[in-house]
Design a protein around this nucleic acid. Sequence first.
DNA 1: CAGCCTCGCGCC
DNA 2: AAAGGGCGCGAGGCTG
Length: 529
Amino acid sequence: MRVALDPGPLDGPARVQRLAEDGSPLGPPETLSDLAAVACVEREHAPRWVFARARGYRRLLAGGVDVARAHDIELVEGLLVAADGQFGQPHGLAAAVARLEGRTPVPDPPAGDDGPPALFDAGPSTDELADIVAVHAAQQRRLSAATPGMRLLAAAESAGMLVAQEMTAAGLPWRIDVHDRLLVDLLGPKPLLGGRPPKLAALADAVNEAFGRPLNPDSPAEVLRAFARAGHELETTRSWELKRIDHPAVEPLLAYKELARLHAAHGWSWLRTWVADGRFRPEYVVGGVVSGRWATRGGGALQIPKAVRAAVRADPGWKLVAADAAQLEPRMLAALSGDHSLAPGDEDLYTALAAREFAGDRAKAKLALLSAMYGQTSGGAGVLLATLRKRFPAAMAYVEDAARAGEEGRLVRSHLGRTCPPARPGHEQPAAARARGRFTRNFVVQATAAEWALVLLAELRMLLRSAGSRAVLVFFQHDEVLLHAPAEEAEAAAEAVRTAAVTAGRRLFGDTPVRFPMQPRIVEGYDER
DNA sequence: CAGCCTCGCGCC
DNA sequence: AAAGGGCGCGAGGCTG
């Protein structure tokens, strides 16, 4: 059974409508007095709840109610609209209703908006539950005519919404004291009135001294001018470019840039803004990236530098279970292309490839494979690619076909059917076409990896729920998950991760010989390997 | 002043 | 010959 839900105000009644699988109503709309009644329906029927958007579930969680399964109207609409080749169309509920009624879709409300939907609903209807029911039925019709992959993708994307909201609610355990100590070690004591911490100030002084005049090391333009006066014409102030020149300012400047980055992006100001009650709570944006990868809002959650990961520590009596998928993208390529010998087993794929083709040089093997998937040809990649082309013709043909499709302006899709938006018009120049080719070449692999990860999350969540585990997902970053688990449940949680990885591979590719191993580590701190 | 762009760098 | 994919964020710096 499915149940469409308009959760209503936090403490007020919720409106629901029971639905058949195809979305047709089973009886009239009903009013539930409060969220406890929603929880009761969940316990008795465990339906697939149909939400207009993520904040519907956020409201349930705020009331202490969680559910097993969902259908997210906005996320599914985005998938279906793109699959129909309707790119750039809004896919909010109001827009979907407008499309159903043959009106021009209204723009989506601003991202992250939490206001009342009626504010943005320019259409004649203000009955959100009726809108949800109507759009859901239309989506189920479209999904029933689509591929099994699309149906799996729609379910997984919706499960992603549940995971995302639950992870934000749980928060990533973050020790302010550990983070602060780390900052003091690297930067010196926190300056009381803003300004540069002592070690940064000293490095800025050293840069000034090396140039013989004061400048702002944070200003690329000033740095370029200073080097030009010293006889070094640089294109940019990127660190790899600075490293190539011989000047006494280079060393302190590189040290300054590294610490300034830490101070600006993950320093005390970041701590004050983003960590509260021992938890960092970024907002996850499911499918926020064209490839289906997630984005986040707030605190740069997907770019937590290795230098501060020690601050992520389990609560007393708890453990972190950290697991990342090893060499996920080349394994995806092996499965997608049928070139199974590219990924023969569980062992490190680059090491294995290096042993067979690159005289044991792992770095070469890695560069070769990444170049194939990103479209890189410089830096010696060309020679390595020739080796791959000879040894793995099907895998190489797969990415090269995707690149050609992009260059010729054709659409490409992920394994399950996420559609890559076409190039914007006006980009027919040869250089732009090649750039487009690199984009689509990468899309087929990255988007398929993203949907594997999505299915993994959904499977892992269900395994933990059905086992009654107290372990909770607290972080997800493309191919990596972090669980927070009571110490005595950590090993079971780790086993769930391994199982979910196997299941995700099977759900995507059936009984492919390609493996997608995850090796969970049970640790106290996220910095421990 | 806000709003927007570029730069550079963090992560995958 | 040359040709590296995807993001978010803060600081600088320009525009209106």
